[in-house]
Amino acid sequence: MTIASPAAVAAKPTRSWSETIAFAVMVGFFLIAPLFIYPLFLMKALCFALFACAFNLLIGYVGLLSFGHALYFGWASYVCAYTAKAWGLTPELAILLGAATAAVLGLVAGSIAIRRQGIYFAMITLALAQMMFFFAVQAPFTGGEDGIQAVPRGYLFGVIDLVNPMNMYFTVLAIFLGCFLLIYRIIHSPFGEVLKAIRENETRAISLGYKTDRYKLVAFVLSATFAGVAGATKAIVFQLASLTDVDWPMSGEVVLMTLVGGLGTVFGPVIGAFIVISMQNYLAQIGQWVLVVQGTVFVICVMLFRRGIIGEIAHALRIKL
């Protein structure tokens, strides 16, 4: 990052074998998974895994709980769906535009929200997201309750036909892995070290000369952008952008995914997203009880294992994950 660090942070690069092995296992799993798991389910889970990773960048490494991440996810999916359908953009351009929208929204919302800390930050992000939800309900181009339907998947780079499920799957996988590695890189960069310093003790980071507000804002915009990539990709996969993706329960879901997997772990959000999405899939027939199950999982996580699944494993084995 271009932000000048006043004191040399040069933390020694802690490359751990456990993370490399876990990454290899993850990539291997995703390469063979479509052979025995329904690709559409995998793609949905991958989109949400990326969403959760983006969210985790903020809560896990800066300690900021954003309760309004559906804003970036949902609006990016609207912009992506609209540009792909109405302007006939190729999917990669539509996704990039969606992500850019999310970045701009993140910049605006972030610069308002970082004025307060802790609980207020969560409430402000939630309120701003709700405001943009109402805009989405009223704006003409979002299609209100209907959303934007029948979005063409189109041809990636004008060549690769994404209607083919395998092409679509590996495109989503490439986007996911690219963003995952980028997030990993950000977390382990000198910039990421400053973020962790802010998480641990913001006052101290300020006294060391860091402009913490600027770091927080950059982290917020990055997180919003990655959330936008996830939302935009989901719009292409499902050929649909709807109000569900901008509404506040979506913000709650991404918190749940990250919490279940493990806040501040690299792989936790991915596992958490897969668990929550499978839970929704298999529990779909029990209707409203899904809400109860999700709420119960929240309560259990907060009361009994705050480290999350991956966090508990990493703690038990004393490795980094």
Binding site: F67, V255, V292, Q294, G295, V297, C301, V302
Partner: peptide
């Protein structure tokens, strides 16, 4: 951390609303 209180009460809100909706 304050945030856990927020998350717990959020979960409880989901449970209560879910039960009543059901």
């Amino acid at each position: 951390d304050h945030l856990y209180g927020l998350l717990l009460t959020f979960g409880l809100a989901l449970v209560i609303e879910g039960v009543f909706r059901n």
